[in-house]
């Protein structure tokens, strides 16, 4: 696996993971581990109060971990984009919808439900992202292709 594939792979995994981490910052905790952060540091105190006033019950530490992994995923995305066609890279981003769905079910503190609407809906979305994000895919039926072959050639030269 070369670095570019690796960067795209990390983007997808870390991007999905960051959504799960962010969500888990909002899930209720046991009473014993309720957020009683030691407010020795002014900045942390302020951030906790701000977050609580905006989102209610939230664990700031997990939120920050989620934010960092989200930012890191974006960084790897930019690295991947230096070498991949935007459309090609975007097509792979569809995988995040599968990973977030599966992850939300398997993640111990989330335990979200599997339902038919979600499963079929995610399938349609992944297929849609594949179609919307690239050149005309191979084996596309004639009626779906653009009538002028010229525009496809132009696109390849870009």
């Amino acid at each position: 696996m070369n670095f570019n594939n690796f960067a795209l792979f990390i983007t997808i995994v870390l991007g999905s993971l960051s959504q799960l981490i962010l969500k888990s910052a909002f899930t209720p905790v046991d009473v014993q581990t309720a957020p009683q952060a030691d407010c020795n540091i002014w900045l942390i105190c302020f951030a906790q109060q701000l977050a609580t006033s905006m989102f209610g019950d939230v664990r700031l530490g997990i939120l920050i971990v989620g934010l960092i992994s989200y930012t890191a995923a974006t960084g790897f995305w930019i690295l991947a984009l230096r070498h991949f066609d935007l459309g090609k890279a975007y097509a792979f981003l569809g995988f995040t919808y599968i990973l977030v769905y599966l992850g939300s079910v398997l993640w111990p503190t989330l335990s979200e439900t599997i339902t038919w609407p979600k499963t079929i809906g995610v399938g349609l979305i992944v297929f849609g992202i594949y179609l919307i994000s690239g050149k005309t895919p191979p084996h596309t039926p004639e009626w779906l292709r653009n009538r002028s072959a010229l525009s496809d050639t132009n696109r390849c030269q870009e």
Partner: peptide, 27 residues
């Protein structure tokens, strides 16, 4: 920019998927 038919089809597929999920309820 030039939007082709398979792009529109992709957009409809995404919208259909989202509509299906939103019909299924929030939890």
């Amino acid at each position: 920019e030039n939007i082709k038919r398979h792009h529109w089809l992709g957009a409809f597929s995404i919208i259909a998927g989202v509509a299906l999920i939103s019909g299924g309820g929030a939890s």
